[in-house]
């Protein structure tokens, strides 16, 4: 059985939960005491991932860290359609480019959230500014993709790149980053949220939770 070392509030772990759900793949979770106990920095966990980070995935003898790496593995192994990680040189290049963006530039939005929610001692103003710059890049790209009739991050169909980019963009409000200025991002988030098998996580306002919360008596 696939085993995910997990923290409920981690957007990086959610990348993996979301993708497993989209694939309809069974798995078990091991909740790791990320907060407040910092179990991910203690010897037991460091044996699993010397970087002291979640998520970690175990499948048989294979142990993988890094959400992007895990998504590539899961798509390669468990997606018979091949569409989530297309077998084409240019397509793979584009997917890898955006996977790297998800694990790199977009993580500034994750850090802003850690500051705002869990009190991490970060320079939040600078993080939000960097996250906004990354959002502008993504928003411009998605707007161009729409014009090309290619509305997903790396091509005409959703790929693991969409799944890797989705969480920290969708959770940006938790870190004090509003998305009013990124209309193409908003439309893309809405497309992800109606994929069959989509699941949310705490902090993501789905269209249904958002409206309902404003008018519970309806």
């Amino acid at each position: 059985m696939i085993r995910l070392y997990d923290f409920v509030l981690s957007g990086s772990c959610y990348k993996v939960r979301l993708f497993l759900s989209l694939l309809g793949q069974d798995y078990e979770t091991v909740p790791v005491g990320f907060y407040p106990a910092k179990e991910h920095k203690k010897p037991d966990f460091l044996q699993l991932n010397p970087l002291g980070q979640l998520p970690v995935l175990r499948d048989g003898d294979l142990v993988l860290r890094d959400a992007q790496a895990i998504l590539v593995y899961l798509a390669s192994k468990y997606d018979p359609s091949g569409s989530w990680y297309p077998d084409d040189a240019a397509a793979r290049g584009r997917v890898a480019m955006w996977l790297s963006f998800a694990g790199g530039e977009l993580m500034t939005a994750s850090a802003a959230r850690l500051h705002d929610v869990l009190n991490y001692p970060f320079d939040v103003a600078s993080l939000r500014e960097q996250a906004r710059q990354a959002f502008v890049v993504l928003d411009d790209h998605l707007a161009e993709q729409e014009l090309r009739d290619c509305p997903w991050v790396a091509g005409p169909e959703p790929t693991v790149a969409d799944i890797a980019c989705f969480p920290y963009v969708a959770l940006s409000n938790d870190g004090g980053i509003a998305r009013d200025e990124y209309p193409a991002i908003e439309r893309w988030l809405a497309r992800v949220m109606v994929l069959p098998g989509f699941i949310d996580m705490p902090g993501i306002l789905t269209p249904w939770s958002g409206e309902a919360a404003e008018e519970p008596a309806a």
């Binding site: 923290f7 409920v8 005491g33 938790d174 705490p202 993501i204």
Partner: peptide, 23 residues
Amino acid sequence: SSYEGMLQWQQGIFLQDRIILEN
């Protein structure tokens, strides 16, 4: 339940409230 299971159950609930509260 494991301690971690209970803890993360409650933390998840709390973060669902947080975004509503902040709005």
